[in-house]
Each structure stands twice: as C-alpha cells, then as structure tokens.
C-alpha cells in the first residue's frame, strides 16, 4: 500500500533542501510514480535541469542526471537526446529557469518538437535567490523586487509552449497529485516535445508576501482555481475569470519528431 519512493532516491539524500510545504516535493513524488508506471530503465533515463529550487530535483533521483547552467536545461537535453535517441529525456525546471533565463532554449526546443518531457514547476517566483519576480508572477503580486506590486503581465507557459510548437501540453497543480503522474506518463509516452506545467506553491518567498497565511491556504487556492479543460468548455468567460485550465490542453501526433528528421539528414549525407 505505501509507495516505495526510497528505491528511486539516492541513499542518504533525504530530508531534501526544500522549505516546509514546498510543492516541489509533491512533484518529485509524481515524477517517481510516473517513471515507475512507464517502467523506465534508470540507465536509459536522463533527467536534466538548470538552476533553481525546482532544478535541485534530479540530484535526489537515482537515474542518469545532469545539473546544468541556468536556463540551459533544454539545450543540454537536446544534446543528450541527439547523441542517444534511445534515451528517455526528462527536463525539470522552474518558471524563471524555463521562461526567463532559458526562454529562448525553451521555445526552440518546443519548435523543434524533439522527443523530451519538460516538467515546468511554476511557483510564480524566483525562490532560491530571494523572491525576485519572474515572468509568471501575477500582475499586482508582491515580490522582493516589486514591493508595490508587479506591473508586468504574465507569461502563460502552456500557451507559450503551444504557440512555440510543442505537441503535448498539459497543466496541473501540486494540489492534484494523482493528475501529476498521470500527465507525466502521457508526456513520456508521447513522441515529441511534451510540456507539463505544474503550478505549485512557494510559501517562503511568495506566500508570506501575498497574504497567504500558510502553505495550506496556497494549496486550497490552487485547488479552488483549477478548472478541468473539459468542464471549462461549458463555462462562460465570466465564470472563468481568475481560474486556470488543467488537464491535457493540446496534443498533436502528426508533427514529425526532430531526431527522426535529423536521422534523415544523416542518411542523405551518407548517401544512403
């Protein structure tokens, strides 16, 4: 009954460094369950990350892991996948790492439709460096660098990924743990770029500046505002004000995958 997560975690690594109540731990559990469901051979699974709280995740997992430069996770992952297309490549990162510093790498990995699964843990803020606002910090929210409220409009990571050309885009929250592993499994099985955006909570740098009394309030807020994409089709724009859609938002199985296209180039160059 109790799930054996410990067999997937490097010995002696727990307790992890994340703050009390941080949603990244919930996502890590979901990722472990998803990897077990897909029966991934850990020697043929590469988990790549950049820098940030969320990017600490691969350090705990017993698989082939790569902790790279800030924002460059997608670029390194592209290299891993091209060098060995048999590898299952999973990228983990936060909203700042993925859409600000690594924004370019992120959209171009989506454009190429290379076969990888990108798990973006969107906690609305740069947690590790002290709570600076990120492109996903909601308009009006307070961060350490926007004490009077953030004037910037936000990046919608899922819409960005769809626009850039990713062929599997889904969104869920840390308050829906069973959906996390369900969507990551679909992402791993999908041939092409899969982006799974997981909205989670940062009680330490975001919650306490934005009138969330505790981590539980943040989790309840996530639960309250999540609307499954199917249910949203029957709702009016007024009812959807301030809500976000969850579940599979976009899937395209037609678009060619990058490694296969590149293999054709290799074949042509070798005169086959």
């Amino acid at each position: 009954m109790a799930y054996d997560y410990e067999k997937s975690i490097r010995p002696g690594k727990l307790p992890h460094i994340w703050c009390p109540g941080c949603g990244h731990g919930i996502v890590m559990k979901g990722l472990i369950r998803a990897m077990d469901t897909c029966e991934l051979d850990r020697a043929k699974t590469s988990i790549v990350s950049g820098i940030g709280c969320a990017s600490r995740l691969p350090g705990y997992l017993d698989a082939c892991t790569l902790h790279t430069a800030h924002g460059r996770a997608a670029a390194f992952a592209t290299g891993v996948k091209l060098a060995d297309p048999e590898m299952t490549v999973i990228v983990c990162g936060g909203d700042g790492d993925g859409t600000a510093i690594g924004g370019n790498h992120f959209i171009h990995a989506c454009r190429r439709n290379i076969d990888m699964t990108y798990v973006v843990m969107n906690n609305y803020i740069y947690g590790m460096t002290g709570g600076q606002f990120s492109p996903c910090t909601p308009t009006g929210a307070k961060a350490s660098t926007t004490p009077y409220g953030n004037p910037d409009p936000i990046f919608d990571i899922s819409k960005l990924a769809i626009g850039a050309g990713a062929t599997f885009v889904a969104r869920t929250t840390a308050a829906h743990p069973r959906e996390i592993d369900k969507l990551i499994v679909q992402g791993i099985k999908h041939k092409g770029m899969a982006v799974i955006e997981v909205l989670d909570d940062c009680p330490t740098t975001y919650g306490r500046r934005n009138k969330f009394r505790s981590v539980v309030d943040m989790m309840k807020e996530l639960k309250k505002n999540a609307v499954p994409a199917k249910a949203a089709a029957k709702m009016t724009a007024e009812q959807l004000q301030g809500k976000f859609l969850t579940g599979v938002l976009f899937q395209d199985t037609e678009k060619p995958e990058y490694c296969e296209m590149y293999q054709e180039v290799i074949n042509k160059a070798q005169g086959a």
Binding site: M1, A2, E6, H24, G25, I26, K29
Partner: peptide, 19 residues
C-alpha cells in the same frame, strides 16, 4: 480510510500508509 491523501501530498516523504 486509506485515501492516501497524506502520503500523496506530503512534500517531504515523511508519511506512509501501511496495510
């Protein structure tokens, strides 16, 4: 009732529900 919510939602791998 073994709904597993505590085990699924614990971010710290700190609680387990055994049969």
């Amino acid at each position: 009732i073994k709904c597993m919510q505590c085990e699924l939602l614990c971010p710290d791998f700190a609680i387990k529900v055994h049969d």
